[in-house]
Nucleic acid binder design. Sequence first.
DNA 1: CCGAGATTGTCGCCGAATTGACAATTGGCC
DNA 2: GGCCAATTGTCAATTCGGCGACAATCTCGG
Lengths: 217, 217
Amino acid sequence: MPMTPQAADPWFSALSPPHRRALLERARVSHAPVGARVYGIGDPPDGLWSVSEGEVRLVSYPAVGMESVAMILGPGAWFGELSTIDGGPRPHDAVVARPARLLHVALPAFAQIAAEHPLIYRDLGVLIGARQRSALAFMGHSIAQPISVRLARTLAGAARASGGTEAQVRQEDLAAMIGVSRQTINKELKALERAGAIRLGYGRIEIVDAARLTRAD
Amino acid sequence: MPMTPQAADPWFSALSPPHRRALLERARVSHAPVGARVYGIGDPPDGLWSVSEGEVRLVSYPAVGMESVAMILGPGAWFGELSTIDGGPRPHDAVVARPARLLHVALPAFAQIAAEHPLIYRDLGVLIGARQRSALAFMGHSIAQPISVRLARTLAGAARASGGTEAQVRQEDLAAMIGVSRQTINKELKALERAGAIRLGYGRIEIVDAARLTRAD
DNA sequence: CCGAGATTGTCGCCGAATTGACAATTGGCC
DNA sequence: GGCCAATTGTCAATTCGGCGACAATCTCGG
């Protein structure tokens, strides 16, 4: 595990060296235990964040009493860019799912970076664009693809975020991400396990055969 | 109807005057008939566009033989920002739905603007951010809200895009936008009509009582 | 003015997913 | 080590929306 997992992130590693350096220099390190809320939905912006270690999840509440995990962020991922660029309220809760070391570029620090490197806004736009492309792909799937396919992609994504072959999610989380009931997810997962693609555990799912998983049939 | 409907667009009108001027100065006017494709899905970026008159729709194809209208753009709306900032392929087809006058800021022109006004990238990021917030809201609804609510919001949005109280969409388009069958949409529309919220026509839907429409129950 | 194609209105049947319920299993904590 | 809460596994009943089909209505172009 490298000292700077940010180097493994496609967005961050594509930045120009001065921009990379500026972000890292202005960032403060902090640690947060499981359950901590980095920021809450509706909060005013407080700058840009990155996960160095552990896991952060962006969750929203589409209806009262319902919780939906929108994104799982592992080491190297940057987040909080939307409110940072447009100044609007946070669209998600960001909660720590596994003990985390975080980088935080506070809003004044970001403003200083921007004053020195105005093109940092272009980078931020590219990051939002990447999120937008993910969102578009997700919407396409949710309308057109059967549950088995969506489940397979969600599983693969969750495992990739954690950087391994294991997704630490409850079946109920998967259900909320995809928008179906837990019972339906359980049935599909059992089918995937019978097919030898995954192995089911308590609060975690191990991916045994990634090829068979994504070749959803 | 003003000479520059762009002034009515919240994004464009919030730009700094120099940025506004730069975009308008570098833009070329063009006209396009119904059915014309401004750009196609997968195309390399060719710059930024805006609707001056008429209507453009962004459509995607989540599955073979399936067509889904993602967004309806009326006078004043700017589009094409995603590929312009990240250089990636177009995520949609942009097709003309009503005879249109368009503004086009070609990629080299945009590069010149950016060289002179680097902060234009911030504006572009804000525009993508607005789209991202819409997408997040949409995803929340599509998972959690009943069809009647999603239909009401989609109708309201379609009418607003056209700048009036009438949405020029086929029921089949609504079905594809929301992700249900045309028959289901028809049933819900009939219910809304009985409730006095809308009036149904051939290829168009008139909104009679916007309050009753959004107070979906 | 009229015909062809497009769009809407409405069946009934069927399959899939939700709901509600409950037992079995697991993991953490005192 | 043992208890409690959380999670998983599974069932039956029921509802909801999809699909195929077809008539009715509308629009547009010749």
